[in-house]
């Protein structure tokens, strides 16, 4: 868990100096890397493509609001999970926030436990997405390295045919098919035919 705390940054966007400062202090003490911004515009100006982490933003700020910031960041890759904090949380805004996939919507004043929990949830989510992304990237790289024959074998195996049937269809010996299958699995970094079937389904 603590490796996530150091891997990701918490971006605090709040127009109230004391809220910003105190939140930053408590998060630092709990081992979260963090950065503070007085308004959404400042954050957007500073934001770098390789920054990765979650955003804790106030709902009501002069200029761009927390919800508007959420909309602006919605299509970003890698994603920046949002936690909205608000001094006058109303059902309508929290609905909008959750529909746009906010991790949490906290009403001020909140407990440090609450915000830490929300941030950890956001980081786990971020971590899962990144792992997924990495796995997919690995697979795509693997697919690119397959030979034509290996790709044919993979396709037929993925459709659920047995080794023997594949061999017959491609005019190969079952043993050769076995060798190709082993190479496909190795290059794609997967363990068994079941995963292969799922992969082929997904890529079709």
């Amino acid at each position: 868990m603590s490796d996530l705390r150091s891997r990701y940054t918490v971006f605090i966007v709040d127009d109230d100096l004391s809220v910003r400062d105190s939140l930053s202090l408590i998060l630092s003490l709990k081992g979260f890397r963090n950065a503070t911004f007085a308004c959404a515009e400042d954050f957007m100006k500073a934001l770098q493509p390789d920054w990765s982490g979650c955003v804790v933003a106030d709902l009501k700020m002069p200029g761009m609001s927390g919800l508007e910031l959420q909309q602006t960041l919605a299509s970003r890759v890698p994603p920046l999970p949002m936690i909205i904090i608000s001094a006058h949380g109303d059902v309508a805004s929290s609905r909008v926030a959750f529909k746009a996939d906010a991790v949490d919507f906290l009403e001020k004043p909140f407990d440090d436990e609450q915000i830490v929990q929300a941030i950890e949830l956001a980081m786990n989510r971020l971590h899962d997405r990144e792992s997924d992304l990495q796995a997919r990237q690995r697979r795509e790289a693997g697919l690119a390295r397959l030979s034509t024959r290996e790709r044919e074998v993979m396709q037929l195996l993925g459709e659920g045919l047995q080794n023997r049937a594949v061999a017959e269809q491609l005019g190969l010996s079952p043993r050769t098919v076995e060798v190709h299958k082993a190479r496909v699995l190795a290059k794609l970094g997967i363990r068994n035919v079941a995963e292969l079937v799922r992969l082929v389904d997904a890529t079709d």
Partner: peptide, 20 residues
């Protein structure tokens, strides 16, 4: 009420930070 919730948030955070 709105304006109260800001310093209260900060108070809770600072107090907890002090504890830590």
């Amino acid at each position: 009420t709105h304006e109260l919730s800001q310093p209260l948030t900060a108070l809770a955070n600072y107090a907890r930070a002090g504890q830590l």
